[in-house]
């Protein structure tokens, strides 16, 4: 087992997981709900990227932002249809979780109807796939691109949330929606913006995932959905930096358990970890002290 190679694999896979989980964490931190339709938006992002490349003949570089914008809009629609009515009624968080499941079923089935269930792939040569030469480990350009895009997007998100006024509004609403509203923050807009950002991140992750594994199906969200859950639990639910750390931890765990010959059990490892974290550190690995949690 080549340790360096495994570390390289863990790093780029971790980039995708973190990107995906960031959207989960963002919605959870601002709204306090678990959006299980997030993985469906991820899958849609991959398909939109694919359609952009194959039908509109744009390059992958243009396809990623396009997929992000469209996924963001899908995500806003998701909010309007599945979350906003329940929020207005002050429905319990569990109801919102269930309505997100309904929305996920809907999105996956619409995709199935439009794109079919056969796995689809990006055309050959849409991204250089030969491994780089002269390196001790196998690295393909796509892995570097994935990592670069993921890290850039994370940095942009961090900037948006910490430095801008909109990000300040988001954090205010996350802290206390009622007080934020009293201070003149339009919480409806903040929610929509949060969903847009989360959807855009999921869309980017979808395209990158689709490029990396080169099989795009309506069900590709299923495998990351539960893993993303593990990631944000590891990072502490709703903790944005934590989601990034969690993504790399889960990817490392997975890559190393495959390398150690336990590829059949890699998911068992991941979910056992999830289980243990919830029992012993529900605030996550990098979390602060629990407040009203668990």
């Amino acid at each position: 087992m080549n340790i360096t190679q495994q570390i390289v694999n863990a790093i780029w896979l971790g980039g995708v997981y973190s990107l995906f989980a960031l959207g989960y964490a963002l919605v959870f931190s601002v709204l306090g709900v678990l959006n299980l339709a997030h993985s469906a938006v991820f899958m849609w992002g991959a398909f939109i990227g694919l359609v952009a490349v194959t039908q509109l003949n744009v390059s992958v570089w243009a396809a990623i932002p396009l997929a992000m914008v469209v996924s963001g809009i899908i995500s806003i629609v998701l909010d309007v249809v599945a979350f906003a009515p329940l929020r207005r009624r002050n429905a319990p968080r569990i109801s919102q979780l269930i309505s997100s499941i309904g929305a996920a079923i809907l999105l996956v089935n619409i995709a199935q109807l439009i794109f079919g269930t056969q796995p689809q792939r990006f055309p050959l040569g849409s991204i250089p796939s030969d491994p780089l030469e002269g390196l001790p480990v196998r690295i393909t350009p796509i892995q570097i691109i994935i990592l670069l895009v993921a890290v850039t997007l994370m940095a942009v998100l961090q900037y948006l949330v910490v430095r801008t006024r909109a990000g300040q509004a988001m954090r205010a609403v996350a802290f206390n929606q009622r007080v934020a509203s009293l201070l003149g923050i339009n919480s409806g807009n903040v929610f929509r913006m949060t969903f847009f950002l989360a959807g855009a991140l999921a869309g980017a992750a979808g395209v990158l995932f689709g490029l990396a594994y080169n099989t795009i199906t309506p069900f590709m969200g299923d495998s990351v959905a539960l893993k993303g859950l593990t990631v944000i639990v590891l990072g502490g639910l709703g903790n944005i930096q934590g989601a990034v750390v969690g993504g790399f931890v889960v990817a490392a765990l997975e890559v190393f358990s495959i390398a150690a010959g336990g590829s059949n059990y890699r998911e068992a490892f991941v979910f056992t970890l999830l289980f243990l974290i919830l029992l012993f550190r529900p605030q996550g690995l990098v979390g602060q002290a629990a407040q009203t949690r668990a």
């Binding site: 678990l34 968080r93 979780l97 639910l237 068992a268 056992t272 999830l274 919830l278």
Partner: peptide, 17 residues
């Protein structure tokens, strides 16, 4: 001992294991 969404996630983990 967990509640709410935390219980949901933990039991999903159990089911997968």
């Amino acid at each position: 001992r967990l509640r709410d969404i935390y219980l949901a996630i933990a039991t999903i983990g159990f089911g997968e294991v």
